[in-house]
Design a protein around this nucleic acid. Structure first.
Lengths: 239, 239
DNA sequence: GTCACTCAAAAGTGTTATCTTTGAAATGCG
DNA sequence: CGCATTTCAAAGATAACACTTTTGAGTGAC
């Protein structure tokens, strides 16, 4: 029986489940499905043309993110945003794709401002010598790209620099932010919130942070990192 | 008359799925199931005496936390800790219940030190007037309980104080930490890392933070909160 | 005899369909 | 109003089939 049910496999990673999850995740995080809205599995399986099993474990996943709660007889209830697991990378991605992305960017940026100085201090204490060397190298590249005005390469290197710091911090909760930091930096450049030419003070601060980490000086690393973030802070009107 | 049909409601929420999830979550986060270990659905459904349906969506949930990855023909592979979604409250709970809980406490505490000053600044900008008043009240209670040496009430009030600050910060990523902050504070007291009598400076700093927030002074709130966290910081040897 | 290539079987998850059980809400009856 | 009954929708079980890698056995060329 030739089942002409050919699933198109080129949609990234296919996965029936993934498509449904993304659709619902985006619908909820964008507010299109407002809190309190009740859904049922039957509805969903008809709407997405999937089996009960797929519908069921999609909802299980959304439930562990606290986007919905499933109760007997009631169905599946969309939860209030205050209950969401807003650190789930997938959820962050959905929110960054939604019309409300600006909220997500400013939250993320404020989080960066809070965390990165301490992460730098941690790196000064606990980074491996390889990481220290790599950081120094990245700071040098950063200056080169910055002075050359190569914004694209500058961004890539800047992302690598900040990610490496959180991953070297010795705190796995800081390290787990690396993907989100990359998103925030990318978003900043895309939204044109980045100066055309990185300021000299910013480049110096990056270099000082790398140096302080290399020399194992936590206090200096923390201070330098605060300076690095100062311009982000003023951009967010936090001063 | 009393139909002894009473289901005890305090078991969390019963749920076959929940029991299996907790068991596996604890086994993985405690390191009992080491990274790279391969499991199969058949094994699991036999071991837990559940159907494939339940086994499957349990694994789906663990997969979204990145505790495991499931691949065709291979089975279900326990992932390396560096890939875990360490901000998932459930995962944090498992880790706090595991023998390695100290790592989790220090990570959490370092995160608090990073975030709370900025959260206080945010609260000074964006808290509602009700929240500002409530904070002032909590600071006063805190002083009363502290001076009376009532550690139990002090802890409860301290938790309420810190939670209220992150929830008033206007940043949902800060607000989402409130449960974890409560756990960290509780743990600190339980582990006897708390001075018997809260220091005067700490009480003053709490009061100054509340006042700065009430008056809408972000800079002062941030500074006062840093002082509040100073003793935590020295306890963690971060100075 | 060894290397490389092909192809088929096996192992395990992915997906669907259908059924029974259970719990909670709504309803109706006294 | 209070209690039992009904009803709805998720929770869970079971069985079958589809899809994908891995493994390895067989085959041929050198």
């Amino acid at each position: 029986m030739a089942k002409a049910r050919m699933q198109e496999p080129e949609t990234g990673d296919g996965g029936l489940h993934r498509r449904m999850l993304d659709a619902l995740g985006e619908a909820i995080t964008s507010g299109q499905l407002e809190p309190g809205r009740r859904l049922t599995l039957d509805e969903l399986q008809r709407e997405f043309g999937v089996s009960r099993t797929v519908a069921r474990d999609t909802m299980r996943v959304l439930e562990t993110m606290n986007l919905v709660q499933s109760r007997r007889r009631i169905g599946i209830v969309v939860q209030d945003p205050s209950r969401w697991n807003v650190y789930d990378p997938q959820l962050v991605r959905w929110r960054l794709a939604s019309p409300r992305r600006d909220d997500q960017y400013s939250s993320l940026t404020e989080l960066r401002i809070a965390v990165e100085p301490l992460a730098a201090a941690g790196a000064a204490r606990r980074a491996t010598s390889g990481q220290r060397a790599e950081l120094a190298g990245l700071a040098a590249e950063l200056r080169a790209f910055g002075e050359a005005g190569d914004l694209e390469s500058f961004l890539a290197t800047d992302i690598a620099f900040h990610r490496l710091i959180v991953r070297s911090s010795g705190n796995e909760m800081f390290a787990a932010l690396d993907g989100m930091i990359a998103e925030a930096l990318t978003g900043r450049t895309r939204q044109g919130r980045m100066p055309f030419h990185p300021r000299d003070e910013a480049l110096d601060a990056h270099a000082r942070a790398a140096e302080a980490i290399a020399h194992g000086n936590p206090g200096a690393a923390e201070g330098a990192m605060r300076e690095v973030l100062q311009e982000v802070r003023t951009a967010l009107n936090l001063d």
